Simulated assay, not measured.
Amino acid sequence: MHGEQPIPNEINRQAAQWFAEQESGDMTPEDEARFVRWLAADPQHAEAYGRAQAVWRFLNAETLAPTPSAERRSKRRWPQLTRGRHRQWIGGALAASLALVAIMDSDIATRLRADAITATGEIREIRLPDGSTAMLDTDSAITFTSDGRTVRLLKGEAAFQVARDPRHPFSVNAGSGTSTALGTRFIVRRAGDGARVTVTEHSVRVAIARQSAVLREGQAIGYDAESLDQPQRVVVADADAWTRGRIRVVNRPLGEVVAEIARYHRGYIRVVGEDVARRPVSGTFDIRDPVGAIDVLQRTLGIGSTRLTDRIILLHA
């Protein structure tokens, strides 16, 4: 039955948007007809829409009034939401909540397979049987062989400190590729069927299918199921800053920075509006306190936010 399977995030988003449309009171007869067709097209549509209704009842729409930044709060009152903007906040909050439900549904299989796993916001060092260590970033999971020399990164990111053993190579499998240590320290981050590998000390051979490349200290490379990218130079202190509880960014879009900080937050954070999301950001942020990091961004950029406690945060102009 459909109800026994996780509902795809895209269907959850569509359901949230349809619910927001109806709550706004702006739907035309043509909109109503499109909604009925969408609802009838797949049993999961009706299930997701029912979930949207339940989530909204739980959230209580009255708590979603936008909260301006501290600086703005002292200067002026926040304007009343138009119906269009009211729909936007409803849709964003619902999509956030439904995404959280989808994440919970999809994480069980990984937990059953993993030898070591971290929760959202947790960074933990794991000692492997061979004496090597794997520092797992937020929401990450690995499995490893009995000798500890072969690791599979199931999700997330991990930094490896490799114990020397020339007779037994140390390798990390992630997606469709394998990274084999030729030195001592490197980082692997999953990305779909591929990954990004960063060398922080000595060198690493990265291979997929019939392609391979040797990375030196201060280089990173990405790959997917079909190809290797070209190696890029990186600043090692920035690349492994998360192992010290920080991230450092230089002239990166706000949307990307918020998405990175959100990985450490047990909730949902999103930037609303392309213009806001493109604003450049530089700085160092404490990922051990993601809400505090978002507060710093909000004050620095002078932007507003809509919050459902600290669990759901929507940043906007």
Rank of each mutant, 00 (worst) to 15 (best):
V257D: 04
R288M: 13
A262N: 11
D289G: 01
A293M: 05
G302E: 02
G302T: 10
A262M: 09
F285G: 11
I303C: 08
I303V: 10
G255N: 14
V250N: 10
R279F: 05
R246T: 13
I269L: 07
A277Q: 08
V257C: 00
G292E: 07
Q298G: 04
E256D: 12
N251M: 05
V250Q: 09
I269P: 02
I261Y: 03
R278H: 11
T300W: 04
V272A: 14
V281A: 13
E260Y: 14
V272P: 05
V272S: 13
P290I: 12
L297R: 01
Q298M: 00
G302W: 05
L301V: 01
A259F: 04
V281C: 10
A293T: 03
V257G: 09
R288P: 08
D286Y: 14
L297M: 07
F285Q: 07
H265W: 10
G283L: 02
V296L: 05
G267K: 13
L254Y: 03
G255D: 03
L301K: 02
V258D: 07
A277R: 06
D289N: 11
G283K: 12
V249P: 03
R252Y: 04
V291A: 10
V276R: 00
V272D: 14
R299V: 08
I261E: 00
P280T: 15
I247Q: 08
P280G: 09
V271K: 06
R270K: 09
E274N: 15
V257T: 12
E274Y: 05
R299P: 14
I294G: 01
P280A: 13
E260H: 08
R266Q: 12
V291C: 07
I287T: 14
V249E: 07
R288L: 12
N251E: 09
R263C: 09
R252D: 06
R252G: 06
P253K: 12
I269M: 14
G283A: 01
R270W: 01
V258A: 14
D286S: 15
P280V: 13
D295A: 07
Y264L: 00
R299L: 08
L297C: 01
P253L: 14
V291E: 06
I287G: 11
V272F: 07
V258C: 00
R288Y: 03
G273N: 07
D286A: 15
R278I: 10
G273K: 08
R252C: 04
H265V: 10
E274L: 15
P280I: 09
E256Q: 04
Y268H: 09
I294A: 05
R279T: 14
R266K: 12
